[in-house]
């Protein structure tokens, strides 16, 4: 893979203190993170958390209001070779009127040096994308499939997918996942992908970045994230007693039962204590961890991140 980078050892992505302001809204605030080269990084968080804004900055589609964005050690907004090292297919990507699939496939290699005609053909076939329909008449699922074709076949050193599964049925999503991992095994590169399908896509990811209200609330490997929380469930009184002094991220009640997601490591001591109290412990899924960082805004206290508000309101009957 050839890249025009001033710093050979630079990570694929490096953001330092990045803010992005739209009128009076901060879409991103003080975002500092790195994505090492060659990893698949999931960008998670509720709608409006800043995922698409962050991805636009990586693609050089805009500039941060503060802080710095580096892709392979250079500014993607001003450094043209870096811009072409990034493939970013927006979920609302527009194409020229009366463009059909063959036009796009003919043009795409001009933007991406490593473009794979074979992979593109294989994907078009797998998704059964029609070649004789104007792309602007494609369905939501067909547009998503097209975005996946353009993103994967680009073999761009940094490939960015914004909720690439919208409108795809379960079978088509499995096609995407299989093609993604197969192509990555043969041609390792860096991928950033935003998703709400956390359970379904977790196994594809090396790292996760969780955004909440424009801020990074978690940036770690998937394994670290999964080890960062656990669930305690059982009779409400037992769970109340067990978690009274612990940082509870989220909590659900069902009649006399309660399930709490607790931040921290699930140790044998925790497990033993729970069992003695008649409760059960289990690893929290990545999905639970993400949901814990995105509790409904209306229960949040203004100006307080939702997860902190959830912690503060813990134990206070609603």
């Amino acid at each position: 893979m050839t890249r025009q980078t001033p710093l050979a050892a630079a990570p694929a992505v490096r953001l330092r203190g990045v803010g992005r302001r739209f009128r009076r809204t901060d879409a991103l605030s003080d975002v500092t993170l790195e994505v090492p080269e060659g990893v698949v990084c999931g960008l998670l968080g509720r709608n409006g958390a800043g995922k698409t804004t962050l991805m636009s900055l990586l693609a050089g589609h805009g500039q941060p209001s503060s802080g710095s964005v580096e892709v392979f050690g250079a500014d993607p907004f001003t450094h043209a070779p870096t811009t072409s090292a990034v493939s970013f297919v927006r979920d609302d990507q527009r194409y020229p009127d009366d463009f059909r699939l063959p036009h796009l496939l003919a043009v795409a290699p001009r933007f991406h040096a490593a473009w794979s005609t074979e992979r593109a053909a294989e994907l078009v076939d797998a998704f059964r994308l029609p070649g004789r329909t104007d792309v602007k008449k494609y369905s939501r699922g067909q547009l998503s499939a097209l975005g996946i074709v353009l993103g994967l076949a680009s073999r761009a050193p940094l490939t960015v997918f914004d909720e690439p599964y919208l409108g795809l049925d379960a079978g088509a999503r499995q096609v995407f996942y299989r093609q993604l991992v197969t192509d990555l095994a043969e041609h390792p590169r860096t991928v950033v992908v935003s998703t709400h399908l956390v359970d379904e896509m977790e196994a594809l990811l090396d790292r996760v970045v969780v955004l909440e209200g424009g801020r990074v609330v978690r940036d770690s490997t998937v394994d670290e994230a999964r080890a960062a929380a656990y669930t305690v469930s059982g009779p409400a009184a037992a769970v109340d007693a067990l978690t009274a002094r612990l940082p509870v991220l989220a909590s659900h009640r069902l009649g006399g039962l309660r399930s709490a997601t607790v931040e921290g490591e699930l140790t044998d001591e925790v497990d033993d204590a729970a069992r003695r109290a008649g409760a059960q412990t289990g690893p929290a899924s990545l999905q639970e961890l993400v949901l814990a960082h995105g509790v409904e805004p209306e229960v949040g206290v203004p100006g307080v991140p939702a997860s902190a508000a959830a912690r503060a309101s813990e134990g206070v009957p609603a």
């Binding site: 060659g38 990893v39 698949v40 499995q174 996942y177 299989r178 991992v181 197969t182 990555l184 095994a185 043969e186 390792p188 196994a203 594809l204 990811l205 090396d206």
Partner: peptide, 15 residues
């Protein structure tokens, strides 16, 4: 192979 296992389970090749 890693590629076969990745494709079969739809799991990241590095994993």
């Amino acid at each position: 192979s890693t590629t076969e296992l990745s494709a079969f389970h739809r799991i990241n090749p590095a994993t």
